[in-house]
Amino acid sequence: MQLSDRVTGAVLMALGAAAALAGSRLPAVPGQDVGPAAFPLLIGSGLIICGALIAFGIGRSFEVPEEPAAGPGPWRLGGLRALVPPVLLLFYVLASERLGFLITGAIMVFIATLALGARPRLAVPLAVVAPLLVHLAFYKLLRVPLPAGLLSAPW
């Protein structure tokens, strides 16, 4: 997802324009002169200016020279792998009520561990132990209502 400044600048400009436009369409509030539109308009305009400065590279001259260090490291097996964590969180949202916290958590940890390149020898015990510990701490000690689902905890 390394994009050129032109692209990100343009995206910011578009976002700013959309925010300003959508903001200006907000209905005024009866009895008030200053309504909900003012702030989004202001921010939208700011974003448009910043986006333009970035896209046309004007801001560069302000820039503190960055050491070339960090940079994008060599990518392993394509960038799609980066989507594993958000997808797993999405899975948690969809499945935790039905499957329960323990099973959902175990699946999440198992997949994430494998995706990070570990062997099942590490992934399986981690997937069993981590959700149990988290459940113990949050459900038992802090009374967070984690869903039981198919498999309720022994406590």
Binding site: S96, G105, M108, V109, F110, T113, L122, A123, L146
Partner: peptide, 17 residues
């Protein structure tokens, strides 16, 4: 590989809590 998955799980629980 053993730290990051647990962090992910904690993120989910922490946001929910």
């Amino acid at each position: 590989a053993s730290v990051m998955p647990v962090i992910l799980l904690l993120c989910a629980v922490g946001a929910f809590a």
